[in-house]
């Protein structure tokens, strides 16, 4: 008798991003509308494993989660010589678009969490017509810093320990202990300075205040979902952001924090299922009407 084998498969795709070749690891499962999932800062695509394995969603969606360069199984590019890693708005946007092109995805849905939620807003501002729908989890145009990121990368503090301990408070107390530990495990495994480098985008380069008003949800629907226990990107941050965007959908998720898909997959499913159903329904109507979707 063989063991239980999960349905997702992992592969590598070679992608040129801003002229530099990257070997990007991704996992996928399912058929249908491409649904590209973006992990949080300092973590990797394993956060999406429950969604990837979801029997119902995978019947209608081709669910894909990739590790950003320098994260998970996506190594730094061959040309990297050790200089400080810093994620930028332009670089992050280019990475997502290049990955989608490399896989030949036609009008994918992109769902991102935390930094992934922030970049989803940038995709909505500048590239809405390329996407079928955009979903921002724990997303806001800006949020107030609550710690000094220099603690994340210094030789006299264990990076894995401090990264995990900092974000541990962003997990809802109701989340199952095993899921909490799994979520933190990825933070304990990040490369030195990578979480800090991601937060350069989050804290410094990716301030979208004053820009989100340009988002046209008539071109691409935008869904924002934030956990009530997220004090980094708080429900108030998301509501404030959505107030500037006509037609943005906002949901505050109970008993969830900053990592809904990994800290409590069952609770998250209750909130994301209706969103995916609505996207599916909208796509079906558009197809019947002959619109290009």
């Amino acid at each position: 008798m063989t063991g239980h084998i999960e349905p997702m498969v992992g592969r590598y795709v070679h992608v040129a991003i801003d002229g530099e070749m990257h070997r990007i690891y991704f996992e996928e499962n399912g058929d249908g509308i491409p649904l590209v999932c973006l992990h949080t800062a300092g973590s990797d695509g394993r956060q999406w494993r429950h969604l990837l394995a979801d029997e119902e969603f995978s019947r209608k969606f081709r669910i894909i989660a990739f590790d950003m360069p320098w994260h998970g199984k996506s190594n730094p590019p061959a040309g990297w010589t050790g200089e400080e890693y810093r994620l930028t708005t332009a670089g992050y946007t280019a990475t997502i678009r290049a990955f989608c092109r490399a896989l030949g995805l036609e009008k994918p849905v992109v769902m991102g969490c935390s930094i992934g939620g922030r970049i989803v807003l940038n995709l909505a501002i500048d590239h809405a017509s390329e996407f079928r729908a955009l979903i921002g989890l724990e997303a806001a145009d800006f949020q107030a810093p609550w710690y000094d990121t220099s603690w994340l990368h210094r030789p006299d503090v264990h990076g894995g320990e401090v990264c995990a301990a900092l974000v541990s408070g962003l997990i809802a107390p109701q989340s199952p202990e095993a899921s909490r530990r799994e979520t933190l495990w990825a933070y304990m495994q990040g490369g030195p300075g990578i979480f800090k480098g991601d937060l350069y985008f989050y804290r410094v380069d990716g301030d979208l205040r004053g820009r989100v008003g340009k988002i046209d949800t008539g071109i691409c629907p935008l869904y924002l979902l934030t956990g009530e226990y997220d004090f980094s990107c708080s429900p108030e941050d998301t509501r404030r952001t959505a107030a500037a965007i006509d037609g943005a959908s906002v949901t505050i998720m109970e008993q969830l924090g900053h990592f809904p898909m990994s800290e409590n997959p069952g609770q998250f499913r209750r909130y994301i299922a209706p969103v995916l159903s609505e996207i599916l329904e909208h796509s079906t109507i558009s197809t019947k009407q002959g619109a290009h979707v």
Binding site: A144, W146, Y147, W151, D156, V157, H158, E161, V162, A165, L166, S168, G169, L170, A172, P173, E228, Y229, F231, S234
Partner: peptide, 28 residues
């Protein structure tokens, strides 16, 4: 929510963290 973590409490100004933070951060 917002009362569930030491740093959530500092963010909402219900707590104050002062001094040499090194031992606190190495053992957060």
């Amino acid at each position: 929510p917002g009362w569930h973590d030491l740093l959530a409490l500092t963010k909402r100004e219900e707590a104050r963290l002062e001094g040499d933070l090194h031992p606190f951060m190495t053992h957060l």
